[in-house]
Design a protein around this nucleic acid. Structure first.
Length: 714
DNA sequence: ATCGTCATTTGT
DNA sequence: CAAATGACGATC
């Protein structure tokens, strides 16, 4: 039975015995590249039949190929030497894709170098074939990927999988276009609003490495500012890579860049393009036909020629963390690339992360920020609304349970012919509550706002329901309609909120933007624009008001970054509002005494980032310290930790159970954190890599997830 | 997956 | 004491 299956060609026995199979050698002998047909045939005939393998001659020069194999095992994370056969001498160029026999299997790999000699004591195997001579892994890209793998304690092959799109033969066959011409030097006068802004761009223009952390002013046309920076680099013949969190941002930055440096000089790299187009655009970058790359996180590896500038916008957005091993972060990869290539880095956003703050405080980067005078002309007026607020007197607004100031701010915006933005918690993020008996929506006894489950827990017990507007917990619910004490969860999304609010403003159209459908822009006319964080449309001419009603949900999260994240989302929405001088107002539903609210009122993200970083130092949390998480079954986690030599400053926290439990009540998965002082981060990564290597070599079945600088810590 | 190495078992 | 078998680890 089994004998009826034809063995694949490459499974034929190697040297001897094939004298009895005269045909074995001929079928694949015709290599299209050999071109000269008659000579090729004569040569093949001259070689007497037996397997071609034994007959292979090493290449006349540089016969050794260093090959990185595409196997994600940590103990095989190094190049292996192969012999280049005579026939592949021309094709086997550094950086090309190859196929090699590795441990009896044919595997894909990359040829990273041709050399004269090998350290290997035994006989080298030959390259099986060259998949294509396109040098997709040149030394520069190899170095980037190796460095990223080392930083995260991961393997090169894992990083290569993130950095190189799958090959598409048809796209590869198309000829490379002409390199785009150098664009004109752009007008960068808009950067004079920021201290050290012009100085930073001068450095980029002079090809001197400079690093900047930039907080954009409210209302800033930041895609255009980024395009100007990219154009500065491009105008002096350097490349630029700009990474933004999502597709919507990418569209804006891409348009701005195309207008600034020309359609042909910029390319958008984005997931979900389709294999051919994805590879085509990536090749255009590799071949140097475009100078400016705009993309989402995978573009952080874009092999742009002669890079002069790397940019990450809104580095606090968790989309910048790649969810695939070894979980690299855009900001950190771009820092590494900028450093390695002596080019510049720009970390921009409306808000500032604790990580960016550390770059500034350590002197690694300069703060590019506006002074208070500029800020005063740009910022909207911010009014916090805490627990004690007056519900609007207007009858319809009372029905919608809207605070009076919020109602008034929205009304003024509409009166001025402008839209108003309402930011509400993400749908499903927080379920709303209704009576378990009669299904009447459950309302707060204090302000009549809707009750919801905040999520998270205190001392192991789930948090009690709380009001969506004022945040007051409800510990003894009783239905107003039927007297039942039972509660049931209902989904209250942006849609429902929109309907409720809409009734308060008859005649004003209500638009929603959220997970289901994200609007890019809304016209500059009266409208109530209800959206979840991150989905705020840009309004033509700016919003007249923004109502930030999700503070209690954002701030209530059990997360080290809750405050930082809240300010980031508020500022992203608030930046779309007109300046106070033009009547722009922000109403934020949170206590005025909170520092995060103060930071919004004063529009001072740097101050808040300084506070955050100070707290992280006190707690010994990132980015003040470096952390790694080790996650898996209890046995697997224990085996890694037991095998991990701790650096001097090393400390293990946990392990703690992770959510799911088995029938016996034991955690099926655990997570431990390993903490070291920042200077030992590199050592920790190497030690974790080695521990993973020993584990892989033992062929351990249970997977362990090792992550450096994980975002979620609590 | 496959191959070589080295230790152990089995057959004289 | 030599040949056969098996466990293990490297994998070019």
């Amino acid at each position: 039975m089994s004998s009826s299956e034809p063995a694949p060609l490459w499974d034929l026995p190697e040297p001897s015995r094939s004298a009895s199979e005269p045909k074995a050698s001929s079928p694949r002998a015709g290599k299209p590249a050999a071109a000269k047909t008659s000579a090729g045939r004569a040569k093949a005939a001259a070689k007497k039949a037996p397997s071609r393998k034994g007959q292979q001659q090493p290449a006349p020069e540089l016969p050794v190929a260093k090959v990185v194999v595409d196997i994600p095992l940590a103990h095989l994370d190094r190049p292996f030497d192969y012999q280049v056969p005579d026939k592949l001498h021309e094709a086997a160029v550094p950086g090309c894709r190859v196929r090699v026999r590795f441990a009896g299997q044919l595997v894909d790999g990359y040829l990273v170098e041709r050399t004269d000699t090998t350290e290997y004591e035994r006989k080298l195997a030959y390259l099986e074939r060259v998949t294509s001579s396109e040098p997709v892994l040149p030394a520069s890209l190899h170095a980037v990927c190796r460095s990223v793998a080392d930083r995260y304690g991961g393997t090169l092959s894992d990083v290569l999988r993130l950095a190189l799109p799958p090959r598409h033969a048809k796209a590869e066959g198309e000829p490379a276009g002409e390199p785009a011409p150098e664009p004109d030097v752009p007008d960068v006068s808009a950067w004079t609003r920021y201290q050290r802004g012009p100085a930073f761009l001068d450095a980029v223009a002079d090809g001197k490495p400079a690093n900047a952390v930039w907080q954009a002013l409210p209302g800033e046309d930041w895609p255009r500012r980024l395009a100007e920076a990219a154009a500065v680099a491009a105008s002096c013949g350097r490349g630029a890579v700009l990474v933004v969190p999502d597709h919507r941002d990418l569209t804006r930055v891409h348009e701005a860049c195309a207008a600034m440096v020309g359609e042909d000089a910029v390319v958008a790299l984005i997931a979900g393009l389709g294999p051919a187009e994805r590879y085509r655009r990536w090749l255009a970058v590799l071949r140097g036909t475009v100078r400016v790359v705009v993309g989402t996180r995978a573009a952080m590896f874009a092999p742009v020629a002669d890079p002069g500038l790397f940019v990450v916008w809104d580095d606090g957005d968790d989309l910048h963390l790649d969810p695939h091993a070894p979980y690299p972060h855009v900001r950190d990869v771009l820092m590494d690339r900028a450093h390695a290539t002596k080019s510049s880095l720009l970390v921009g956003g409306f808000a500032r992360t604790a990580e960016a703050q550390l770059l500034v405080e350590s002197g690694w980067a300069q703060a590019v920020v506006a002074d208070r005078t500029e800020l005063r002309t740009a910022a909207p007026r911010v009014t916090p609304v805490g627990e004690d607020f007056d519900v609007a007197r207007d009858e319809a607004a009372r029905v919608a349970r809207l605070p009076a100031v919020a109602f008034e701010a929205a009304r003024q915006a509409f009166a001025a012919g402008l839209p108003a933005l309402v930011q509400v918690p993400r749908r499903g993020y927080v379920p709303g509550l209704a009576c378990g008996n009669c299904r009447t929506p459950a309302h707060c006894r204090r302000c009549a706002g809707p009750l919801a489950l905040p999520g998270g827990s205190v001392d192991g017990a789930p948090k009690p329901p709380a009001c969506r507007w004022c945040g007051v917990p409800e510990t003894a619910f009783r239905c107003q309609a039927c007297g039942s004490v039972r509660l049931r969860a209902v989904i209250v999304g942006a849609k429902r909120t929109a309907e409720e609010l809409g009734r308060a403003f008859p005649g004003v159209p209500v638009r929603t933007s959220g997970a289901a459908e994200v609007l890019a822009t809304v016209p500059g006319r009266p409208a109530l624009v209800v959206c979840t964080p991150g989905a705020e449309p840009v309004a033509e001419g700016g919003y007249g008001a923004a109502l930030l009603l999700d503070g209690w949900a954002l701030l209530g999260r059990q997360d080290l970054r809750a405050a930082e994240e809240t300010l980031r989302r508020w500022m992203a929405a608030g930046a779309l509002v007109r300046p106070a001088s033009s009547g722009g107002r922000i109403i934020v539903g949170a206590e005025a005494g909170l520092s995060v609210v103060q930071a919004l009122v004063r529009w001072d993200p740097a101050w808040h980032a300084g506070l955050e970083l100070g707290q992280r130092r006190e707690l010994g949390f990132p980015p003040a310290m470096r952390m790694a998480s080790v996650e898996g079954t209890p046995d697997a986690v224990a085996s890694v930790l037991d095998d991990l030599p701790l650096p001097d400053t090393g400390e293990i926290l946990g392990p703690v159970p992770l959510g799911d439990f088995d029938d016996a009540g034991n955690a099926s998965r655990e997570r431990a954190l390993v903490r070291v002082a920042r200077p030992e981060g590199k050592t920790l990564a190497a030690l974790l890599h080695d521990a993973a290597a020993r584990r892989d070599a033992r062929k351990a079945a249970e997977p362990v997830r090792i992550q450096l600088d994980p975002l979620e810590l609590i």
